[in-house]
């Protein structure tokens, strides 16, 4: 493990964490919540934090987990319903090859989700080879 990653973990103890909304972690208090100043978005993870966790995972010998966390970082801006829609399209026999490629392009263009896009293109090619596309 690199000393940088070692000293960073747990990130909960570091000073400059932000929620997905941009609110500093220090502002997310019981008093603020009682005053109605906290929404669900203030209790969601920020992409930068997931990338930091990915670096920690990599440094500790968990490269596949790190890849997952980097894909996750790209998805933090994708709304709930869209995430559910992407998952549904990736299930077997839900989408055509072209639909999957368009989905990949969309995620890349709309959210900068290049890693997810590559992953979905890989799926599309596997599904075509294994008859897992919509019939």
């Amino acid at each position: 493990m690199t000393s940088a990653a070692e000293s960073a973990y747990p990130l909960r103890e570091s000073a400059d964490l932000h929620a997905h909304s941009g609110a500093p972690l220090g502002d997310i208090t019981a008093a603020a919540l009682a005053a109605g100043q906290i929404s669900g978005d203030d209790l969601r993870v920020h992409a930068d934090t997931l990338r930091q966790q990915a670096a920690i995972a990599d440094a500790n010998g968990y490269p596949q987990l790190a890849q997952n966390l980097r894909r996750a970082a790209e998805l933090t801006d994708v709304p709930d319903d869209e995430l559910l829609r992407v998952y549904e399209m990736l299930r077997p026999q839900r989408a055509s090859y072209d639909e999957l490629l368009r989905l990949a392009d969309y995620l890349e263009r709309q959210y900068g989700a290049a890693r997810n896009a590559a992953f979905i293109r890989d799926a599309a090619s596997a599904y075509r080879a294994r008859k897992l596309l919509r019939r």
Partner: peptide
């Protein structure tokens, strides 16, 4: 096995995506 995976209505890619979706929400 591929058949049982598909019978479970998923593929390795859909399951991996689901894992990332969960992680994206912490």
């Amino acid at each position: 096995s591929e058949q049982s995976f598909v019978d479970g209505d998923d593929s390795p890619w859909s399951k991996a995506f689901l894992a990332s979706a969960y992680a994206s929400r912490g």
